[in-house]
Design a protein around this nucleic acid. Structure first.
Lengths: 149, 149
DNA sequence: TATTGTTATACTCTATAACTATA
DNA sequence: TATAGTTATAGAGTATAACAATA
């Protein structure tokens, strides 16, 4: 009944319909655009917000370790962190002669709380329609996929 | 037993662990990089391959309609299609004074077949570890998410 | 020798604006 | 007036290379 191999209606065929990768990409693009908008009032970009949240959860973490965790290159971490320091959100101290340990300032904690609220609100708005089971299963599967590849 | 709210081990906490959006993003980035590599031998970029596959499935489709379906702006479709025509993969004919109807050439059909093979091979390599049920459920959920947002 | 941080820079992708021609 | 296509261009994100300082 659902066989449309001899489909002669005017409905255009959609060769991407069964490609999981295609749908991941489309969701990712829309979601990132929404995230940019959600963080705009805080004057934070997604990478900056994620770095702040990572520092908050791991005070004293090294700049290079954050880059490794979040897959941000050293060369791109430098100006990003410099901006956060200049804005008074982060302070850095020498861990040894090379590494910089990062911590949030009071202002940094405030803006990080707002950023996390914005992220969680977007998560709910975007994925709230999914059942808890579907959501947990997708989270588990996707986490495994990127951590293994 | 699994409560680590009083965790005092050296394992760094991971504030992104439960964020579905974060995992979608990480998977998307890795997957797109793999797709770029998989299409490199054909000298196609992901957008070009997707456009070819769309034309193959809908011969005579309009350049602007492809852009609408794949979310590619007119201004970016123009040089993309021009390149495919110059390479002898696509031919365009006037549908009316404004619109261009696109079709694959013989060479275009060959390279499109190779591109689709590469895409499907990557899908299997990347998502093959998922159970059929999980894969279908993710596909369904993600398709709904981007088509509704 | 390898690692950390920094700077400069190039490349890709995507977005906007302006224009022509046609519906 | 709105749509289709084109061109030029700007911006964001990410990549590489080279360098200094330190382990």
């Amino acid at each position: 009944m659902k066989d449309d191999s001899q489909n002669n209606t005017a409905v255009p065929s959609d060769p991407t319909d069964n490609l999981l990768g295609y749908h991941i990409r489309r969701v990712s693009v829309i979601m990132m655009a929404e995230l940019v908008k959600a963080l705009q009032p805080l004057e934070l970009r997604p990478a900056e917000a994620t770095v702040l949240i990572e520092i908050e959860a791991n005070p004293g973490i090294t700049q290079s370790d954050i880059g490794k965790i979040l897959n941000i290159k050293r060369a791109n971490m430098a100006p990003l962190v410099a901006g956060l320091i200049e804005r008074g959100c982060v302070r850095s101290s020498r861990r040894d002669g090379r590494s910089l340990a990062l911590r949030l300032t009071k202002e940094g904690r405030r803006i990080t709380r707002d950023a996390r609220d914005a992220v969680l609100e977007l998560e709910e708005r975007f994925f709230g329609q999914l059942s808890t089971e579907d959501r947990e299963q997708m989270t588990r599967n996707l986490r495994n996929l990127w951590q293994e590849n």
